[in-house]
Every structure is written in C-alpha cells, then in structure tokens.
C-alpha cells in the first residue's frame, strides 16, 4: 500500500493552533520510514491522519492504498485493520483479563471469525513478537514485565495482519537491551509480517541505523526528507529544531571539514567499513 498525502493542513478548532501545515509526503510500499521531530512538531498528529483518527482541516489528496480518506464513504474499520498503529507506551492500553483476550480484541472488532481461526491468528501474533504463546496466553497482562507488556500490546495490533505498521516512539522507556531487542523485532517484522513500517522517533542514531527513508518534521512542516545519508549530511542547524546529529553524520561532516571524504551511508557498520578502507588507502 502506497501512502500519498498532498497539502495536508490540520488546525485545532477554527482559530486554534495549526499542528500540521501544507504537508505533502509519499511513503512507498516496503519502506522502513522514519519520522523525526521534537515534541509538538506535528509528527503524531500527522500519523493519526493515516488511519482516520484525525481528519484534515484541508487536504488535496490523502490515500492509503485503495482507501481514499477524503471520501466520506471511506471504510475506516477496514482501513484500520490494514494499517496498524502502535501508540507511545502502548502497554498503557492493555485492559483485558488475559493476554489472549487483549490480543484478540482487535480481531473481534474487525471480523467475525470462528474460535479456531481466532486462536490461530492470536497465536501467530504472540509468537511473531517473540513470546511463548502457551506460557503467556492465560496470564493477566498486568502481571507481565514492562518489555513483555509492550510486546503484547504490539501483538494486539499485529493480530489483524496489517500491511502497514505505524509506531510512535516504540522504544521509549526501555533499557538499552530492551531497545535493541525491540528494534531487531521490528527489523524482522519488516517485509516478512508487515510490508511497510513507519516509525516515529527522536533518536537519530536509531533512525539512521534502521530506516530506508526519513522525513524531518519541524513546526508542522517537513524540514526535509529522503534517504538518511542524503538528509543528514546536507543539514545544518539540527540542534535548532530540537534534534541531534546522528553520530556518523557528525563525524562524516567533521572529517570533511578536515579534507577527508568518506563515501558511506550513515549506518555504523558501513561507516566503519569505509573509514577503514580510507585509512588503508592512505597508508
């Protein structure tokens, strides 16, 4: 499913604050798309447009695959089963008595399935996030550890087998190991279980490491977008819009100032590889 958005503007109330201004963005199928920006830059408001939770004030085009969100007859329920959304701290939405019921919540809302079918899909969703179905299905979600809760919440979104998965700050509050595990989970989900991943984040190092494309939001507008290596290398003044340079981008730029050009993208491994190559060439 390709996502196309043209000239989207969103304002709270009639004379309220404009959260998103004249925003145009296309996200192709198969991308691991990073959306970056500080709190209040409009990134959360934007992603909530993609499954119809927020309706644009004005917009020229807003389509997700075959769904036209500007059409009044748009089937939001069907759309929401195709485009899963994981909010920040998703574990705070858990409510059911058992993990099974919580994960099955989405399924029951979207379709009437037989007991066997439901069980099969819930099992698949729980296993795909790396949890033991038999061990966990009858536990109360409130008795799990923080990391497990978050996985259960993500399973609750994956259970309808969405084509697009949107995550708002999926790693916030996790310790380094938990963060690493979650990101590798997303990596393994990408292109196997879900086709497209859109991740909202303000951790630049994570974004350059995992995303195929990024868009930088600033004050409701797109500051710039493209492949991470293009975007961060060109940019000046990231600090001013509340962000930090990714480490590799910073080093690349500083070395260039010293007359050393390193041809690499911004993932750590590629940077290290090319840096070592350069050093060997030199000596």
């Amino acid at each position: 499913m390709q996502i196309v958005c043209k000239n989207l503007t969103f304002a709270y109330g009639k004379r309220g604050v404009t959260a998103v201004k004249n925003l145009s963005l296309t996200i192709d199928e198969g991308e691991f798309f990073g959306i970056i920006g500080e709190t209040g830059s409009g990134k959360s408001t934007f992603i909530q447009h993609l499954n119809g939770l927020v309706k644009p004030t004005t917009c020229d085009e807003l389509t997700v695959g075959e769904f036209n969100l500007l059409d009044k007859k748009c089937d939001y329920k069907k759309l929401r089963s195709k485009i899963g959304m994981v909010f920040q701290y998703p574990e705070y939405q858990l409510f059911a008595e058992t993990v099974f019921e919580d994960v099955a919540f989405g399924l029951k809302n979207f379709a009437s399935l037989t007991k066997e079918e439901t069980e099969k899909m819930v099992k698949e969703a729980i296993e795909v996030v790396g949890l033991d179905y038999e061990k966990i299905k009858n536990k109360s979600p409130f008795d799990l550890s923080g990391g497990q809760k978050r996985r259960v919440a993500i399973a609750g979104v994956l259970v309808t087998k969405p084509e697009v998965l949107i995550l708002d700050e999926p790693a916030s509050g996790l310790d380094p190991e938990g963060k690493e595990q979650l990101l590798s989970l997303l990596h393994s989900l990408h292109k196997s279980f879900v086709k497209t991943i859109i991740m909202v984040s303000h951790d630049m190092n994570t974004v350059v490491e995992h995303c195929t494309k990024v868009a930088l939001f600033n004050k409701g507008e797109i500051y710039c977008s493209g492949r991470p290596s293009e975007v961060f290398f060109k940019l000046e003044g990231l600090e001013e819009i509340g962000l930090e340079q990714p480490l590799t981008g910073y080093l690349k730029k500083e070395l260039e100032l010293k007359g050393v050009n390193i041809e690499s993208d911004l993932t750590v491994d590629d940077f290290v590889y090319n840096l070592v190559k350069k050093l060997k060439q030199g000596s």
Binding site: L53, Q93, F105, N109, G156
Partner: peptide, 13 residues
C-alpha cells in the same frame, strides 16, 4: 483522548 484513539485504531467502535 489517547486511549480512545488507541482502541479505535484497534477497531473499537
């Protein structure tokens, strides 16, 4: 507001 949106995203009606 956030919880309502999150459950709506999971198809709640």
């Amino acid at each position: 507001d956030r919880i309502i949106k999150a459950q709506k995203a999971r198809g709640a009606d």
